[in-house]
Amino acid sequence: MADLPNNLQSPWRDWPLDREIVITRVIDAPRSLVYAAWADPDQIGRWFGPDGLAIETREIDLRPGGVWRFDMVGDDGTRYTNRMRFLRMEDAALIEVEHGSDEEDDPGTFRMLITFDEQSDGKTVLTLRQMHPSRARRDWAIGFGAVEYGGQTLAKLARHVASVNAR
């Protein structure tokens, strides 16, 4: 590709595809409602996380520079600490966060970009992109169940938004 002029080279050539996980879901609701489910501290803990895990919030400040510290708690009492640092929030368009355990210098912390694209039929295409620090860490996350758990999380989001939309 180096022999091609710049205007013909793929814009993907420098994108680290081997570090990325992408999960997409069409949600039958306007993007303003879907975005609000992510951006409203009263809503996010009600639906976030995979099936079988409850959310216990310890601190929540959903704005650029803010942090959400929470535990995912399994039926058997197992706790998974989490910290999301909100980097960017563009109303009804996108949210960018760093997500990892609630430990300083967590080597597994990854960047996550959530985009909300409203369709002409009023549905929203939500795309969740995770960018992991290395290919090995991405492979570990996939093996742990990141794709399946991400799909479960977005299904819970869709059910939550449907109940809000029905009111």
Rank of each mutant, 00 (worst) to 15 (best):
residue 1 M to V: 00
residue 3 D to C: 02
residue 4 L to Q: 13
residue 14 D to P: 01
residue 14 D to Q: 11
residue 17 L to I: 08
residue 19 R to T: 02
residue 20 E to W: 01
residue 20 E to D: 06
residue 21 I to R: 02
residue 22 V to G: 05
residue 22 V to P: 10
residue 22 V to Q: 07
residue 24 T to C: 10
residue 25 R to F: 07
residue 29 A to H: 01
residue 29 A to E: 00
residue 31 R to Q: 13
residue 35 Y to N: 02
residue 37 A to N: 01
residue 43 Q to L: 01
residue 43 Q to P: 03
residue 45 G to W: 01
residue 46 R to L: 03
residue 48 F to E: 00
residue 50 P to L: 06
residue 50 P to F: 10
residue 50 P to Q: 11
residue 53 L to S: 04
residue 53 L to R: 05
residue 53 L to Q: 10
residue 53 L to K: 04
residue 54 A to P: 01
residue 55 I to L: 00
residue 56 E to W: 00
residue 56 E to V: 05
residue 58 R to Q: 13
residue 62 L to D: 09
residue 63 R to S: 15
residue 63 R to K: 15
residue 65 G to W: 09
residue 67 V to L: 08
residue 67 V to K: 08
residue 68 W to I: 14
residue 68 W to K: 05
residue 69 R to C: 12
residue 69 R to T: 14
residue 70 F to Q: 07
residue 73 V to K: 09
residue 73 V to N: 11
residue 80 Y to M: 14
residue 86 F to T: 14
residue 86 F to L: 14
residue 87 L to D: 15
residue 90 E to S: 11
residue 90 E to N: 11
residue 91 D to L: 14
residue 92 A to I: 05
residue 94 L to G: 04
residue 95 I to C: 12
residue 97 V to N: 13
residue 98 E to V: 13
residue 99 H to Y: 12
residue 101 S to D: 07
residue 101 S to T: 04
residue 102 D to I: 10
residue 102 D to W: 11
residue 102 D to T: 08
residue 104 E to V: 10
residue 105 D to I: 00
residue 107 P to D: 09
residue 107 P to T: 03
residue 108 G to W: 12
residue 110 F to T: 03
residue 113 L to T: 14
residue 115 T to W: 06
residue 118 E to Y: 02
residue 119 Q to M: 08
residue 119 Q to P: 15
residue 119 Q to N: 15
residue 120 S to R: 14
residue 121 D to E: 14
residue 121 D to V: 00
residue 124 T to Q: 03
residue 129 R to D: 06
residue 130 Q to C: 12
residue 133 P to K: 06
residue 134 S to G: 10
residue 135 R to W: 09
residue 139 D to A: 15
residue 141 A to H: 12
residue 142 I to M: 08
residue 144 F to L: 08
residue 144 F to M: 13
residue 145 G to W: 02
residue 146 A to Y: 07
residue 147 V to K: 07
residue 149 Y to K: 12
residue 150 G to H: 06
residue 153 T to E: 04
residue 154 L to V: 08
residue 157 L to W: 02
residue 157 L to I: 01
residue 160 H to C: 02
residue 161 V to H: 05
residue 161 V to A: 04
residue 161 V to M: 03
residue 162 A to Y: 03
residue 163 S to Y: 05
residue 165 N to M: 08
